[in-house]
Every structure is written in C-alpha cells, then in structure tokens.
Simulated assay, not measured.
Amino acid sequence: MTATTPELQYVIGDFCLRRQFTPKLLEPIRRFTEAWLAFWQLSELADPCLSIVTELCANVRHTPDRYFELTMSVQAGYLRMNVRDHSPILPDVPHELSDPDATSGRGLYVVARYADRVGVDRLADGKEVWAEIALQERVDAA
C-alpha cells in the first residue's frame, strides 16, 4: 500500500429488515441505516444512503400488501441497498426529471441521482429495486 492510497477496512456483513410498510417506519429505518454505516466505517455516506433507503422503502406504499425486505451489504467495492416486495410491477428508473412541477414520481429519480448504479430485477414472487454506491470513488474523493 502506498501513502496516497487509503486503506479500506470495511466490515463485511449484511443488514436486513422485513416489515410491513407504514410511514412511521421510515424514521427507524433511517436510524438503522446510520448505525450500520457507522459499524461499517462508512458514516461519510450517510446523506446519500439515507435518501436512497428512504425513497426505496417509501415506494412500497404502492404495493398491494406493503410487505418488504430491505437489505444493505458491502460487496465487491460497493455499498448495495435492496428493497424486495411482492408487486410484479417493475418501475422505470428515470435519469431525467420529466415534469419539474409534478407532485409525485420523483423518488427513483432521487435514487438515480445519488447512486452510481440503479436497477430493478423481476423475482418469482415480486421484484427487487436496488442501488449501489461505489466505495473506492467515495474514498478517493474525500
């Protein structure tokens, strides 16, 4: 390791929460997210991660049963945040804000602005919406 290369010492592990969505759950989810980021020594990513996790979880309110699973993990140089639900409807991830005056439809746009990669995967029992933040790029920028 050179003097100019910061040492990455991330604790590898997963955070997982399975619940039925209610708006009151968003604040505890934010606190859990902050705690896990601190545990992984990634507190500097709190602002983008809190926005991403909040938006991904809030979208579950549109699903029929509102049950979801939030997972966060550090893997292969990325912090990955996933939300799985039982809805078969796959959302579009907009990379441009189509109507600046719209009162809804901004959540995944916000996710796409904060994340380095965003995607939606169809599952046998629903879907998974995920976002990743590249860790090395964030460390190098700090």
Score class of each variant (00 low, 15 high):
residue 57 C to Q: 03
residue 41 Q to L: 08
residue 86 H to G: 12
residue 68 F to L: 01
residue 84 R to A: 07
residue 139 V to T: 13
residue 90 L to W: 07
residue 104 S to E: 14
residue 22 T to Y: 07
residue 99 D to Y: 10
residue 119 G to K: 09
residue 102 A to S: 13
residue 139 V to K: 06
residue 118 V to M: 05
residue 50 L to F: 04
residue 86 H to M: 11
residue 101 D to T: 07
residue 2 T to Q: 14
residue 135 L to R: 04
residue 93 V to N: 03
residue 51 S to H: 04
residue 6 P to F: 02
residue 58 A to R: 01
residue 61 R to D: 13
residue 85 D to C: 01
residue 37 L to W: 01
residue 64 P to G: 00
residue 134 A to K: 06
residue 24 K to S: 15
residue 127 K to D: 04
residue 129 V to W: 00
residue 122 R to H: 11
residue 115 A to S: 12
residue 76 A to K: 08
residue 116 D to C: 03
residue 24 K to L: 13
residue 42 L to T: 02
residue 85 D to M: 12
residue 99 D to Q: 14
residue 98 S to C: 02
residue 39 F to I: 01
residue 110 V to N: 02
residue 43 S to G: 12
residue 114 Y to V: 07
residue 140 D to R: 12
residue 56 L to P: 08
residue 133 I to N: 00
residue 52 I to E: 01
residue 98 S to K: 09
residue 113 R to Y: 14
residue 80 R to I: 14
residue 24 K to I: 12
residue 136 Q to K: 06
residue 51 S to E: 06
residue 3 A to M: 13
residue 106 R to K: 15
residue 96 E to I: 09
residue 47 D to E: 14
residue 52 I to P: 01
residue 24 K to D: 15
residue 133 I to C: 04
residue 126 G to L: 01
residue 64 P to Y: 01
residue 17 L to W: 04
residue 74 V to L: 03
residue 42 L to M: 04
residue 128 E to I: 06
